[in-house]
Design a protein around this nucleic acid. Structure first.
Lengths: 150, 150
DNA sequence: TATTGTTATACTCTATAACTATA
DNA sequence: TATAGTTATAGAGTATAACAATA
């Protein structure tokens, strides 16, 4: 990006921060039992299949201690199960149960419906575009943290 | 948006939620004295000029009690000042001080520099595009909450 | 009586640190 | 000795509720 447009980054920062308010509002529609972070955990596991705790924490973007707490929460409710990791006895593999899949389907639909009411005037293309840019944003951050020495 | 693309909303939700991790990471570079919410408060006041507490809280996207706490924090450090509201003695008008402007300039530059390192491969157009979509997202939410009866 | 803002309190989310078990 | 994960504790951040002052 050109030098004189540097202030656009500050502006982007403000709008990124404002997303927090939207997330809080959307999160209020979730059941008390399943906070947004737990739903994210289940959703990621459903997509990735089996994961170890460390990999899961990276994907959620929280400390491993936080991910561990949420995983325990989800296991206690039967949404996630842990099996021994054959390659490393310090670790266990996490996987979504059928019950977890059901919960995910129900809450995803409920969430999507709520969001669609807010974004009634958005086109498919608009939504796709925002998704792509957010994916790219995350990618840029991840790849930058992977090589902090440069 | 067409019906069969409904699941895109759930996907958008996941990526919006993931922005939180980015915000946390960016927030770590701020001074202990000035958390992200305080910076947002100062930034909004600098842009809008004088604001009452209620209007400020709406713009930040938090409860008025939270905004009040942050305002007190900023006033105590000399970044914001309160003057009587001539039209309503229950309220006061908030405004950024010179000191607050200085802080905002310094932290904005620092923030922009950090973000620009993460987004080194983004073009002006990319950044602009994301900003526009985030603004529109916020607008859609605000206008929807303004008429909840419909 | 309703509204604006403040303050006290509680709740949610996350990180740090101490610890156990295994690599 | 280093690493994966768990748990205890502490620290941010936010919301709810009770309150005071004014509309």
């Amino acid at each position: 990006m050109t030098e004189h447009a540097t202030s656009s980054y500050a502006e982007l920062g403000r709008h990124l921060w404002a997303v927090g308010a939207i997330n809080r509002e959307m999160g209020r529609s979730l059941p008390h039992d399943c906070p947004p972070a737990t739903l994210a955990l289940i959703s990621i596991l459903a997509r990735k299949g089996e994961l170890r705790m460390g990999g899961l924490a990276d994907l959620i973007g929280v400390d491993i201690s936080v991910a561990s707490r949420y995983a325990t929460h989800a296991v206690e409710r039967g949404w996630v199960e842990r099996t021994p990791d054959p390659d490393d006895k310090r670790s266990r593999l996490l996987r979504v149960t059928d019950s977890g899949e059901e919960l995910l389907a129900e809450l995803s639909e409920r969430y999507a419906e709520a969001l669609s009411r807010y974004l009634a005037d958005w086109s498919d293309t608009d939504v796709r575009h925002l998704i792509e840019l957010l994916i790219r944003l995350r990618t840029s951050f991840d790849s930058c943290r992977a090589k902090p020495a440069e």
